[in-house]
Computed example of a mutant assay.
Amino acid sequence: MTSLAGFALASLALVAVPGPNLVYIITRSVQDGRRAGLVSALGVETGTLVHCLLAVGGLAALVTDHPIALTVLRYAGAGYLAHLGVRTLLSRPAQAGDGPQQPARGRLLRVYGDAVLVNLLNPKVILFFLAFLPQFLPTGLSAAGTRARMLLLGAVFLAVALTLDLCYALLGAALTGRLRGTPRGRRWLSYAVGGVYLTLAALVFT
């Protein structure tokens, strides 16, 4: 139990460090409101679940055994962030008659899908499950016991990450709700969000 508590605290510290996942959640809630932020948090953690299952199945290890694969994944993630940035800058802000209403179902599905991809293309998450998580595995476990323990740790990490992500989504939506209520505010939020995506993508190449 103590090791689980320590793992939960370590997971909290890691999730709190800004990265593509956190930036995506905050920018979605800032630009599109609370519902989009919450959906993006669910999408990001769906990607985390996939990473966890791949690590348990041993498939993620194949990626880390080939440095070129991690490099490709890294640049693919940067490219996708750049795509999101350009798409945001070119998108037409909602008209004044639309008000600060929540996005339609189709837009929410795209927000969810983008969130999943942002996480899946984040090599740091793969490295987390292969380098950090095993440090909390007891010695002497059988293969089945190791997989079961990894699933348990993955569930703990998922719960911590989802809780924090939802908090960030709610906070981002609350702080910018008034800005989204005006055409000028929505336009400047689009510029800010697009700029954040492009800056984050550019950092990969520096």
Rank of each mutant, 00 (worst) to 15 (best):
R105C: 08
R92Y: 07
L84Y: 05
Q135P: 00
A8W: 01
V72S: 06
T206M: 12
V116C: 11
P93C: 10
F157C: 13
L152E: 13
L171N: 01
D165C: 05
S29V: 05
Q102R: 15
R28Q: 15
L108S: 08
G185V: 04
Q135S: 12
L133S: 13
S190F: 01
G6C: 08
P123I: 04
G195W: 02
V44F: 01
A174C: 10
A10G: 08
T182K: 01
G177F: 03
V125F: 05
T88E: 10
T46C: 12
P100W: 08
L22N: 12
V50H: 02
R92E: 11
R74N: 10
L49Y: 03
V204T: 14
R187W: 08
F205T: 05
Q101K: 13
L198G: 08
T27I: 00
D165T: 04
L38D: 10
G154P: 04
I25D: 11
S142Q: 05
G57Y: 05
G33L: 11
T176Q: 06
A69M: 13
P18M: 11
L152K: 01
A76M: 15
A69V: 12
V160I: 04
L12A: 15
R180C: 10
L89G: 06
R110H: 06
R74T: 06
G177Q: 13
R92H: 12
P93I: 08
L198R: 07
L171A: 15
P100C: 14
E45W: 00
P138F: 12
A159D: 06
A202L: 13
V160R: 09
L158F: 11
H66D: 03
A76Q: 11
A169S: 13
A61D: 10
A96H: 05
T206L: 15
L179P: 03
A201M: 06
L170Q: 14
A55T: 06
T27F: 01
A60L: 15
S11L: 07
I26V: 15
S190P: 06
R147I: 00
L141T: 02
R107P: 00
Q95C: 11
L120R: 03
F157S: 13
S91F: 08
T163L: 12
Q95P: 01
A173L: 13
G57H: 08
V125G: 05
T182R: 06
Q135C: 07
L81Y: 00
R34Y: 03
F205G: 09
P93K: 10
G181Q: 15
Y191G: 12
H83E: 09
A159C: 10
V72F: 14
A104E: 13
R28N: 12
T64A: 12
H51P: 01
A161C: 14
A159N: 03
R34N: 02
L152Y: 02
R74P: 01
A94W: 02
Y24E: 07
L158H: 14
R147G: 14
V86D: 14
L53Y: 04
